[in-house]
């Protein structure tokens, strides 16, 4: 099975990755090979097998509703690529 470059571009869009033409071509080839490889799973009979999301199946892990310290604003924003006052700033979102 081979992925089309359009499929690769669509996946890149979902993943918010800008790809160069070169990367798109390479990934089309690589992903086709990898998808071919993982397709061997289709031959495993998994009828009546429940998916296993975690090897250690814990349940009911909670914390109490007790306040913990928040970060000072300056620390929260210390790593922000752009801040405006006490806000994170991003290119205008119109909705």
């Amino acid at each position: 099975m081979s992925l089309s470059i359009d499929q690769v571009r669509w996946v890149a869009h979902l993943a918010r990755l800008e790809l160069t033409d070169d990367e798109a071509a390479t990934f089309t080839r690589d992903l086709t090979a990898i998808v071919d490889y993982v397709n061997q799973l289709q031959s495993v009979n998994t009828d009546n097998v429940e998916p296993l999301a975690h090897a250690v199946e814990l349940t009911n892990v909670f914390r109490a509703d007790e306040p913990a310290e928040s970060l000072p604003v300056d620390q929260a924003l210390a790593n922000a690529p752009r801040r405006e006052g006490d806000f994170y700033a991003v290119p205008a979102v119109l909705d």
């Binding site: 914390r63 007790e66 306040p67 913990a68 310290e69 928040s70 970060l71 604003v73 929260a76 924003l77 006052g85 006490d86 806000f87 994170y88």
Partner: peptide
């Protein structure tokens, strides 16, 4: 454990 209080100064209740 951050507060859920309404109307706090911006980005003051984060961790």
């Amino acid at each position: 454990g951050c507060s859920t209080r309404f109307g706090l100064p911006p980005n003051s209740a984060t961790c």
